[in-house]
């Protein structure tokens, strides 16, 4: 520049340092500011507060299924008949696509015993998220997904159709023999 008055040349690295420090501080600030903008889309406190529910199964008759909503998803609570239990246990597990025994589909109660009559599952087809039809539907007397024709047996295991996995189990525990806490 024409009017530049000659000043003693300073070590240029000092200038570089202040630029780098400023840039770094700015980058850190933007990064920290971005987190609230992202985190606000995560589940809010009231949503999280409803993430556990208790289900009383004493009113569910043998052969009946109730559907409760947990975290926005349908939960199938089925009171199985002895016939359904027997069918589920008669299968050769090694032939299954997603091998699981019937007991692996259950959770022990407060005394450490299984309650095989109660089957609790997330009612969402593992193929593409439709809700299967219950009441001994499909080729295996369990559930049948109308979207793409997946058949589940009386333990909710995938037997036929495109779904890759058995119906998922929600995290739950028995509070009493007929009262469970999901979540």
């Amino acid at each position: 520049m024409a009017e530049t008055v000659s000043t003693p040349v300073e070590n240029p690295s000092r200038r570089d340092f202040i630029y780098i420090a400023t840039g770094a501080a700015g980058a850190v600030g933007v990064g920290l500011y971005a987190w609230p903008l992202i985190d606000q889309m995560n589940p809010a406190a009231d949503t999280k507060a409803l993430s556990t529910i208790e289900v009383d199964m004493s009113g569910v008759e043998v052969g009946q299924q109730i559907v409760v909503k947990w975290q926005g998803k349908p939960i199938f609570v089925r009171h199985r008949t002895q016939k359904e239990i027997n069918e589920a246990r008669a299968v050769d597990v090694s032939t299954l696509r997603d091998p699981q025994t019937d007991e692996q589909r259950l959770v022990v109660n407060a005394e450490g015993k299984y309650e095989p009559q109660f089957l609790i599952m997330i009612g969402i087809c593992t193929h593409l998220g439709c809700v299967p039809i219950g009441n001994n539907s499909g080729d295996y007397d369990g559930w049948f997904c109308p979207c793409h024709g997946s058949h589940y047996d009386t333990a909710g295991r995938i037997r036929k159709g495109p779904a890759p996995k058995n119906l998922y189990l929600p995290p739950y525990q028995y509070l009493t023999d007929t009262l469970i806490k999901i979540g």
């Binding site: 609230p36 903008l37 985190d39 606000q40 995560n42 809010a44 406190a45 009231d46």
Partner: peptide, 13 residues
């Protein structure tokens, strides 16, 4: 009020 009380960082946004 839901935003200010329950939404993550809603009290700031």
């Amino acid at each position: 009020q839901h935003i200010k009380r329950d939404v993550n960082f809603g009290w700031m946004l």
